[in-house]
């Protein structure tokens, strides 16, 4: 099953649209609640990042019998040093993002903890792509 969502630039109130929808789909498919939580927490973190640090983008989701594959690709400033961005506590979040309760530098490390595969690629001045996979068993 293939699903696509658009993440709109600056639209914080809609951050989580893709994750909410994926949550409903996985529940309907009978995927175990602990696994659903890992998937949607990771996807939500990536969605929030695409709005908080970039200018929006696309979410592509592929659900198979035994796994889910997710890609969040944004247009944005990119990440100059991915290893640094992966460190817990590292954040360049703007004050507006912090006012929303984000910007603790915990998102990327949290994605890593929740998924079976995380691959972050980025080109400065172009954008960032976060690819994740979670196995259902």
């Amino acid at each position: 099953m293939h699903q696509e969502y658009t993440v709109i630039e600056g639209d914080f109130t809609n951050a989580g649209t893709a994750s909410s929808s994926v949550k409903k789909t996985l529940k309907q498919l009978g995927v175990a609640p602990q696994i659903v939580k890992r998937v949607v927490v990771a996807l939500y973190e990536a969605e929030v990042n695409a709005i908080a640090h970039a200018y929006g983008g696309k979410v592509l989701v592929d659900i198979e019998a035994d796994k889910i594959h997710m890609v969040v690709a944004d247009k944005g400033p990119g990440i100059p040093d991915i290893a640094q961005a992966m460190q817990e506590g590292y954040s360049t979040a703007r004050p507006e993002v912090r006012d929303m309760g984000f910007g603790a530098g915990m998102g990327l490390p949290n994605m890593k903890k929740n998924v079976d595969m995380l691959n972050v690629t980025s080109e400065v001045g172009v954008g960032t792509t976060v690819e994740m996979m979670v196995k259902f068993v």
């Binding site: 914080f12 989580g16 994750s19 909410s20 949607v40 927490v41 939500y44 929303m100 309760g101 984000f102």
Partner: peptide, 11 residues
């Protein structure tokens, strides 16, 4: 804010 509710939904 709405993000509080969304976050709770995801978590």
């Amino acid at each position: 804010n709405v993000q509080t509710i969304r976050t709770c939904d995801m978590a």
